[in-house]
Design a binder for these strands. Structure first.
Length: 257
DNA sequence: ATGGTTGCTTAGCAA
């Protein structure tokens, strides 16, 4: 079973690339973020023609998440379901046989100390609450998405330069660790120890050609799934060429239980 | 401190 996550930065702008990538790699489940479309505008036909179901939690202009899958999803849930008034579409959950999959778009946070930053920290706290209430670490689970947090110095091209920013501040790293401590392992790090491997590069300042990136897109898995994880990769190739997203897809493969 | 780029939406915001 191949599970992927990709912040596409507008599904309409990326549709051609997305469909081509699905055809090439044939993932079983794909978590998408930053759709930037309302549900009614989601390109469902193109996705279905590529052979995928789609569970969509869309939003006009900003945010929006989805889970594409070859098999039909069960138990689709939209949002954090914690009673908090929040109209930002940032989390969708679905189940495939015994595996629960979540597609998350963690708030960017703007500037450290801003209202958006406070919302980011609170959102990560609420995500931990969601896991505690509705999930079980002894069950197979993959929490995938754009977390807008690089976990460690080796995940950042210039850790000192980024330490005061929303993507790598000690406070957000601690907030991410609080989510992970529920019982999640970083699928990518099961197979890759080295630094210099990133999933996002700023469109500006030639960040990609200079490989000045950060690893902020993750597939976090519960222990039962970690034990089945046989491969993981970042599709850096997708950041190249015509009209790329600023994020590359991240993939993990699991053997049958 | 600012700028650099992209996408959505219509000049400005978010990332």
């Amino acid at each position: 079973m191949k599970i992927a996550t990709w912040n596409v930065n507008s599904i309409r702008a990326r549709l051609e690339r997305l469909v081509a990538w699905l055809k090439t790699h044939q993932p079983d489940v794909v978590c998408l973020q930053e759709l930037k479309v309302a549900d009614a505008e989601f390109p469902l036909l193109a996705v279905q023609e590529a052979g995928y179901h789609a569970a969509v939690y869309g939003q006009r202009t900003y945010n929006g998440v989805a889970i594409l899958s070859r098999a039909e999803p069960a138990e689709v849930e939209r949002g954090l379901c914690d009673g908090v008034q929040d109209d930002q579409a940032r989390l969708i959950c679905a189940r495939f046989a015994d595996v629960r999959v979540l597609s998350a778009y963690v708030p960017n946070g703007g500037e450290v100390g801003s209202d958006k930053y406070a919302y980011k920290l609170e959102w990560l706290r609420r995500l931990r609450g969601y896991l505690e209430r509705r999930c079980e670490p002894r069950q197979p689970l993959a929490l995938c998405g754009d977390f807008n947090v690089a976990p460690e110095p080796r995940d950042v091209a210039d850790p000192e330069a980024w330490a005061d920013t929303v993507l790598f501040h000690p406070e957000v790293r601690a907030a991410l660790e609080q989510v992970r401590s529920w019982g999640l392992r970083d699928a990518f790090r099961i197979h890759h120890e080295e630094g210099g491997l990133y999933s996002w590069w700023d469109y500006r300042m030639l960040a990609f050609p200079k490989n000045r990136g950060l690893r902020i897109d993750h597939i976090f898995v519960s222990e039962p799934l970690a034990e089945r994880c046989v491969d993981s990769s970042i599709h850096r190739q997708e950041r190249k060429g015509k009209q790329p997203s600023d994020h590359a897809p991240v993939l993990a493969e699991f053997k049958a239980a």
